[in-house]
């Protein structure tokens, strides 16, 4: 029975996680500061922020940048609890596991600040190790926070269109957009197929049969996607597509965007120059 539930939980869990993480437009549609900026300018300035984070060697500056990120999130009407949860989920993955070994003298020799005895083995934490591990973790926290903030305050289709200012080929942008569009359709098909199976077989299903059904589902989904691929291509041809897509560009840069770009560029230059002087 538990094995049955495992399949059900996996399918519905994966579907709802994907739906929530990919298709949640809730914050991007709010009337906040970052949402009001032109997506191109916003992406450009966020790249500057992330580059500043990479260039700076000062934890104090990194902490200031992190604070600035939280303030921007507040001004953009993002729930801080949600924002922290969203960013801190990734931190252990990206940094803690890498940073922890750097604390110890084996990897970073230097001035001892703490010695730990574990079953006779001596582990020494060094000042240099602690400093480089903290710098690394703070850098990751701050850059991940900026990346997440850009993601939650910008709609996915806008982010896709922004790729074009970085000269990403139109066909690539369009393919990404179509993936985004059809992932949802397939998620719905998976969900509905599973419900249809459940309604016919009831809840008692041997796990081996469950595995068979999942495998059958995958192959059926593959066939549907193959059919859809051909049908969508025909729909594109029917509306004049001839190999090189022309996509919509209706972004408008306002004076507020220029002011924001100017301030962030100035800040970026100061950080770079400051870093060189220090």
């Amino acid at each position: 029975m538990k094995k049955n539930n495992f399949i059900e939980r996996s399918i519905s869990g994966a579907v709802s996680f994907l739906k929530e993480s990919i298709f949640a437009d809730e914050y991007a549609s709010k009337n906040g500061f970052l949402q009001s900026l032109d997506p191109r300018i916003k992406t450009l300035t966020f790249l500057m922020f992330i580059m500043a984070i990479l260039f700076t060697k000062s934890i104090a500056i990194l902490l200031c940048l992190y604070a600035a990120c939280l303030v921007l999130a507040l001004f953009s009407k993002i729930n801080i609890g949600f924002f922290l949860k969203r960013t801190w989920i990734f931190i252990p993955l990206f940094s803690l596991f890498i940073a922890i070994p750097a604390l110890f003298s084996i990897f970073t020799p230097g001035q001892t600040i703490l010695t730990i005895n574990i079953i006779g083995a001596k582990l020494i934490i060094t000042r240099q190790g602690l400093s480089s591990a903290s710098l690394f973790v703070t850098r990751v926290v701050t850059s991940v926070s900026f990346a997440v903030l850009l993601n939650v305050t910008t709609r996915h289709f806008e982010l896709l269109r922004v790729l074009r200012i970085f000269k990403v080929p139109q066909i690539f942008v369009m393919t990404l957009g179509m993936c985004y569009r059809y992932i949802y359709l397939f998620l719905e098909i998976v969900e509905n197929t599973y419900l249809a199976i459940k309604s016919r077989v009831g809840s008692r299903l041997h796990y081996k049969k469950g595995q068979e059904i999942v495998a059958w589902n995958i192959s059926s989904l593959w066939q549907r996607s193959y059919y859809l691929n051909e049908a969508v291509y025909n729909a594109m041809l029917s509306r004049g597509y001839s190999g090189e897509p022309v996509l919509l560009n209706d972004f408008k840069i306002k004076s507020k965007d220029w002011a924001w770009l100017f301030s962030i560029t100035l800040f970026f230059v100061i950080i770079i120059l400051g870093g060189k002087i220090i």
Binding site: F157, A231, A235, V246, L248
Partner: peptide, 29 residues
């Protein structure tokens, strides 16, 4: 000649409704 497909999910392949509506005329210049 313009065709409205039986399955609208086939015809609407862009990320937003606006982009979908404008897709045809943009391709045709």
């Amino acid at each position: 000649v313009g065709l409205v497909f039986q399955n609208p999910d086939v015809q609407l392949f862009c990320p937003t409704v606006k982009e979908d509506i404008l897709f045809g005329p943009l391709q045709l210049g």
